[in-house]
Design a protein around this nucleic acid. Sequence first.
DNA 1: AAAATAAACTCAAATAAGTTGAATTAATGA
DNA 2: TCATTAATTCAACTTATTTGAGTTTATTTT
Lengths: 409, 409
Amino acid sequence: MKARATLSSSSPSPPAPAKATAGSNAERSRHHNRKVVLGYISANAPAGRAEIARASGLSTQAVSNIIADLEADGFLASQGRRKGARGQPPVQYAINPDGAAALGFELRPDALFVTLVDIGGAVRHSARIPLAASGPAEAAFEIMKAANTAIAQSGLERSRILGAGVVMPGPFGIELDRGSEAELHGWADTDPAVFLSNALEMPVIVENDATAAAIAERVRGVGAGLDTFCFVYFGTGLGLGIVARGQVMRGAFGNAGEIGHIVVEPGGRPCECGQSGCLEAYTSRLALRRMLAEAGVKADSAAEIEALHEAGAPALTAWLDSAAPPLSRAIAMLENLLDPQAVVLGGALPDRVLDDLIARLDLPAASVSNRPDRKRPRVLRGVSGRTTAALGAAALVIHDTITPSLEPS
Amino acid sequence: MKARATLSSSSPSPPAPAKATAGSNAERSRHHNRKVVLGYISANAPAGRAEIARASGLSTQAVSNIIADLEADGFLASQGRRKGARGQPPVQYAINPDGAAALGFELRPDALFVTLVDIGGAVRHSARIPLAASGPAEAAFEIMKAANTAIAQSGLERSRILGAGVVMPGPFGIELDRGSEAELHGWADTDPAVFLSNALEMPVIVENDATAAAIAERVRGVGAGLDTFCFVYFGTGLGLGIVARGQVMRGAFGNAGEIGHIVVEPGGRPCECGQSGCLEAYTSRLALRRMLAEAGVKADSAAEIEALHEAGAPALTAWLDSAAPPLSRAIAMLENLLDPQAVVLGGALPDRVLDDLIARLDLPAASVSNRPDRKRPRVLRGVSGRTTAALGAAALVIHDTITPSLEPS
DNA sequence: AAAATAAACTCAAATAAGTTGAATTAATGA
DNA sequence: TCATTAATTCAACTTATTTGAGTTTATTTT
């Protein structure tokens, strides 16, 4: 669901143009190699030219040229020479956080979240803007205003903004009528990426919350060292972001990751989607809210939930107990199907509640994921908190400029 | 789990070499572009130079050079000019089936299956060789003998063999002790890809049965037009091959696709793996065999099962009825998680039994996969039959030479 | 029937990257 | 101090694609 909005009007020839994978040439190789170098330094800073050359298979000369380029563009900063070993000490380079940044937006019916994240992964600006209306015109107006504020406050030049990521409620391209209460109205006939790209005059990537959250963790969180992992996102419902070999998995129609409506308890609790025993009916904020309401407790905001947890409220504990087993099954399933390095939990639940939920998980010992050489836990908690989605939106843009695609060409 | 066996002995430097994505240069661009052109023609034959240039973004001149190359190498054959339109009629090209081929092996404890598939997707040779022993030495000997026979019978020159794919029981790198009855002994300390590559003196790819089957369908079956799909493979247990954007998904440790042991019926039938309600306990040949045995029927071979099905044996019908609901849930889950274009069923069950099983599936209407614009059924039956795995092994090699990786570089 | 148009294709020179191999620089260790 | 090791740079080279002009072959229009 990404779009580098360019309004190319290809001739409408009838015999379906049948796109192929793009061919490569010197210029595209250049882009790729710059990403390779940036990505390596991002993951292994500080690093010297020779080291990068060895890791990438490029000649030291090529790396040298690329680094000179990237340094001139402000993406890299020299860190001096590392001494101690034999031979000429390598000049070490690291990402220059002031070199570039990206905007991230989370658009909801009632509010707009804005973030500005630099290529070092640091959050330079973050704000919440209440919205009266969330149609394309109003949203675009607020987004443009928020972008200007964010850029001004960050002290960065506008030319240093790589682009914007936008998270908005999906799924797109298909009507599911799953009683979605968080829908955006007025966007039916608008391609958000193209529309917002024209408004902001910069590249725009539109993505769902769970995937954005996953990338947020990868760029600046527990996912830093992870190449292949899943992010289970507690939003209104439950979402899943899948990253495999550093690439986002979107599925054939951009709707991959609908983990909320997989059946974990056949014949179990009825779900709004018409099925019974959906994971979302047990393990989601909706389910939590329902259980609290049944117990006569009213709590919706994260702060209220955190307070309940602090106080050891029985209704919350009961929810944790009922949410953990279905989630355990779902995670075991993810491990079996996707063989990830880890599964990350995060989103709009307080960290401590998530930690508590993770502690209650019971994952099968006989699993492809229970490797003897594991270094990190099978399940991790995300560290970006409630702004994960907006952060992730920005992170997506950064990820895009830093992460090369799989193979060379 | 693929390995272009090259015995490079990198210096064992302590500070972990930290591999990066490979950089690109002119030569790698060349490889990539040849794959792009081959892949396009393979999917859209016959095609002309200009058409390929438009689809790939390459200049017509570049395409022209590449096609000249590929034709000289024997990979392409001209199909004459297509008339009827305005302008100079384009010279059409198609894959030349005699240009190259790949060997495929399925190694089991008791037998070795061999196939030779050409780049057109046609099976040129196929055989089953009983094995007395399946250790590395014995297997390598039989594989080399079988390779020679296959190549000789195909009438192709040895230089036209691109490589070999090998399917052997996994999972690798981890001991699961799931009561696997189909294990291979003596391979614990051997890297099969390197070992067999040295023996055969050609590149060798080792893969699991389900993934191989998926690629078989993609290269020469119902998966022809599919880029993102899943293959549920009935082997001894139950396997899953995942293809996303034309790339095989192997997971972080090469063990993705363990669909047999996801829990579809919590608290249900006990499984050898220690869990209860695993999909494999219901929907697999093991489960079928068990149900037949309980009914006093003994049938193991595909022919026997087909006969039972033909006769409408109650025990078989009972199995179908018990296998379909768990499988439906599993497929719905795959659809929700991976949003594939289709899910393909295949492997070591007779086609008619698979068709019958598919007919009994009950998939939720409210699904991201139930798109209004669907052209093909959500679930398809594979067409490669019982030799799928060995075919797929060969297909993997062909897929590798024909399918470029995602983005240019 | 001739001219105009359209499209595919080829030729030759230009270009833009990465590669190669020799030379240079700057540290450690004997 | 001198040999060794390793990073880096310089300048010439290589490779594959692009560019732009020109050619071929068909259809459509006049």
